[in-house]
Amino acid sequence: MGKDILRLDSVVKVLGEKVVLYDISLDVRQGEILGVIGSSGSGKTTLLRTMIGFLVPEKGHVLVRSNVLSGLQHQMYASVFEHGPLVKQVFGFASQHPSIYLNLTVEENIEYFASLYGLSQDSWKKTADLLLKLMDLSHARKSVAKEMSGGMQRRLDIACAMIHKPRILILDEPTADLDPFLRRNIWDMIHRIAEQGTTIIVSSHSLSDIETICDRVAILHKGRLLSIDSPQNIKKQFITSEKISVQTYPGAYTKLVSGFSDDAIIDMHQEGQELVITTIDVESTIQHLIDVIRASNEKLTSIRVLSGTLDEAFLQLTEARQ
């Protein structure tokens, strides 16, 4: 990962009478995919909108590295609030609900937003071709947005957000309300965009998706940043137990459990045809388990380690905070 491209210093944001963001400080590294996770109302959207300078914090600073802005090389960082037009060229933003005109076609939407970024026709047409290919929308250029599926609208929205080739792409819940197939589609596309060097900040409820695609994850809870690290480190840090799923034949689990004693085991229970063991030391527990099975008349048919997920880490973290 490169240097930081965006920094938030002690950002406090108040909406109405409610403090939505408490003293948030974080940095976004060039070229990374940063996931922002949190429950509903945790302040994810407010954080993302503050990052692009759309919302002005009551306290703190949002700074973008100057080398991505033309004409401000003598400074290391520039405030997103003080260089509006320049900063706006740096960010691309796709919000939770597609920000597109439903009565316009795919091409017309792209043309319109390209014009708002001051792009010439030659310039945006080339970018649009690439984007539509990337978003798998080439065949739908002339389709009116309102006649397209939710997934296509979402992809069009992202295409509109990228028409000016932003250095930082912010995606707010890009897979919300989409079916699993479309979600997979969107995440693949995000991955492809990241491969082209664009820094991506993405928020989502789908922690499993975030876990697989993001380089780092920021966990927000009630407006506070609880953690920001790689998914692995977060899991390592916050998940204290793992699960082992075992299936034997003929499956006399009661007998098996009665002869099984391990200090590392927290819980054992039967789920259908499987025995699920929760342990704090997977390796020793598996070794011990195999020994017990060999000593019994049971025949091992399958054994799986159910590794801790980000969901669990998130729950652990937020519950601990509660």
Partner: peptide, 13 residues
């Protein structure tokens, strides 16, 4: 009230 209202504001227009 259109969905695109927000995007208009984040462009340098």
């Amino acid at each position: 009230s259109s969905r695109a209202y927000f995007r208009n504001f984040i462009t340098p227009t």
